[in-house]
Structures are given as structure tokens and as C-alpha cells.
Amino acid sequence: MTEEQNRNLETEYIEKQLKLQKQIDFANAVHPESVKTVAGVDLAYWKEDDGEHAVCCIVVIDFLTKEIIEKKYVSEKVKVPYIPGCLAFREIPLFLKAYEKVETDVDVLFFDGNGYLHPRHMGLATHAGIVIGKSTIGIAKSYFKIGDIDFTMPELEQNSFTDIIISGEVYGRVLRTHKAVKPIFVSIGNKIDLDTATQMASALVTKDSHIPIPTRLADIMTHEVRKAEKNSV
């Protein structure tokens, strides 16, 4: 695409994000005590001779036992260019195709990435949550800086946190899931509040990893599938 086409596409995407922003639901559609199933969602990219390819993996687990219920994925060539702040438009088509394969009625989906913690509150977790009408949570391993606003590191104790506040509004939360380990960045997606998202993220962490199980498993699966897809070419 030409630079002008990219600019036009960016303008179109931003307009859509601002419209979608009005549909964000901050109320809990579910409560932790009633949740039975959760899923982790992650995407990975690689280059081939014909262009860029991506895979979207979804791993569904039992919220209480943490056992895997099902794993689904879709892999295909990427057709949408990368535009900063508009990544969801690149990933939504692939996610929806993978989500269509999921047979379980998932209560909450955890996305490896951001939701409300985004310049226009439209990270993939929020965008996808609105589209599918489900409770979604964004779990990022690194901070997506908005403007010149940095975050305050939480105390070293497990489950300590600080909120990321921009222009007086809470965009997300810095959560220390294990004592003295690198924190994660939690933000709501849709149909959930930040306290509930934090509570569920903490409940899904094990002693083996500071990342919640759903996104950790999805991340591992994307690496496995990407390797297999690349080797099959």
C-alpha cells in the first residue's frame, strides 16, 4: 500500500475505534465464583516469500481445575498492514476465525495484549470483547506507553499493584503476581471491571509462572504452531 492509502486506512480505523469506544461495557457479565471456563488468546507472526503470515491460538481451560478443555488455531497470510494503535484490525479477522472453531461456551477470554490500556481504549481485548459480546481481559507482559505517561512500580509483595492513571482516568493496572518478579499489565476488555479482572488474573497464576495460565498456554501454543507452519513450507 502507498503512504496515502495507509493514512486513509488509519483515519478510517480511528473513526471506527471512536465509535466502538461508546459500546464498552464496564459492568461484570460474570463473577469469579460463577466462572467455569476461561480461554487464552495469542497471535504470532512470521515472514515467508509471499509475505507475512500469522497464527491465532485459543486455549480453553477449566477455571477451577486448570485442566485444558480444548485448543484451536487458525493460520493464514496477513492482509491488513501494521498501523500503530490499530493493531486490532489486523488481528480481529484471524481471531474470529479461530473463535468460530471453539466448541466450549467460554465465560471469560484473556488476551495476550492490551484492552482498555490503549490511546483510544481499543486494544484487541476490548475490540474483540465488543464484537463477540463476551467478558474479556487484556494481559500484557510489557507496558504500552501512552503519551509520556509512565507507570509506578508496585511493591515487591505478591498481588501488590498500582493503577495507570492518565488525565485522571484509570487505563489499567500494574500487577505483581509473585513476590519480587516482573509485574504484568492488566486492563479490562469488555463486560468486566478492573477489580474483577485483577482478581481473576491472580487466581490463574501458578508457582511455575507469573503469567496467568490461559495466556501462557496460548503463547506456548503459538510458538509451537508457528514452528510447525514454517517447517511445512
Rank of each mutant, 00 (worst) to 15 (best):
Q158R: 15
I146A: 02
K101N: 09
P93I: 06
V35E: 09
L20H: 10
P183Q: 03
Y171F: 15
V170W: 04
Q21L: 15
V55C: 06
C57W: 00
M221D: 01
V80G: 02
P84G: 12
V225Y: 03
V30M: 15
L96K: 08
A98Y: 07
P183S: 04
R226I: 05
I61M: 08
V106K: 00
R120C: 09
T11S: 14
P183K: 02
A140D: 03
G85E: 10
F89Q: 00
E10D: 08
V108E: 04
A27W: 13
N231C: 08
Q199W: 13
A54I: 02
G40I: 07
G51P: 01
V59G: 01
D163I: 04
P119W: 11
G85K: 04
K97T: 02
A125Y: 00
T2H: 12
A197L: 06
I149Y: 15
D49W: 09
A39T: 10
P154E: 05
E103V: 11
S34G: 13
I69R: 14
S135A: 15
A201T: 08
Y45H: 04
G85H: 04
L204K: 01
V186C: 06
K16M: 15
G113D: 01
D195V: 13
F95P: 00
T196M: 11
P212H: 04
T65I: 05
A29R: 14
I83N: 07
L18D: 14
N190A: 01
Y13H: 12
L64C: 10
T162A: 09
A29M: 11
D148F: 06
R173F: 07
C56H: 00
